Computed example of a mutant assay.
Amino acid sequence: MIITLLVLMIVNFLEALYLAMKYWGLKKSDATDSEYKQMVNKVAPFMYVTLSISVIVLIILWIFE
């Protein structure tokens, strides 16, 4: 279970790092608000899916523990 938690944490960390890098790139290029919204709309579905998968895996592990 510890290994699974570590994998989930690493995946979520990589998502946050990717989002931070995109944000930094937009901020560096003085992007408009619409470009920030476009970035969030592009990344949000993937983040919702990985969050849902993480919660489902944690519930399954908790049930079978």
Rank of each mutant, 00 (worst) to 15 (best):
Y18I: 05
F46A: 15
L19E: 01
I10M: 12
L19C: 06
I63A: 00
L58P: 03
K22M: 12
L61S: 07
L26D: 00
S52P: 02
F13H: 05
D33K: 14
I10E: 11
L17P: 01
F46P: 00
K27L: 10
S34Q: 12
I53D: 00
W24R: 15
Y23H: 08
E35L: 09
M21P: 02
K27F: 05
F13I: 12
L6Q: 08
L51M: 08
I59K: 03
V7Q: 10
T50R: 08
K28A: 13
M47Y: 08
F46T: 10
A31Q: 00
M39A: 04
V7T: 12
A16S: 10
V43D: 00
K22W: 06
F46K: 07
M21I: 09
F46N: 10
S29A: 15
D30A: 05
L14G: 00
M21K: 13
Y48R: 07
V40I: 13
M47K: 06
L17A: 09
F13R: 07
T32I: 07
I10Q: 09
P45C: 03
M1F: 06
K37G: 05
K28P: 00
M1A: 08
T32M: 09
T50G: 06
K27P: 01
P45T: 03
L51V: 05
M9D: 06
D30L: 08
L58E: 03
L51E: 05
I60N: 09
I53N: 04
F46M: 11
D30W: 09
F13M: 15
V55D: 07
Y23F: 14
Q38I: 08
A44Y: 13
K42D: 11
I60Y: 14
I56W: 11
V11H: 00
A20N: 08
A20Y: 14
K22T: 10
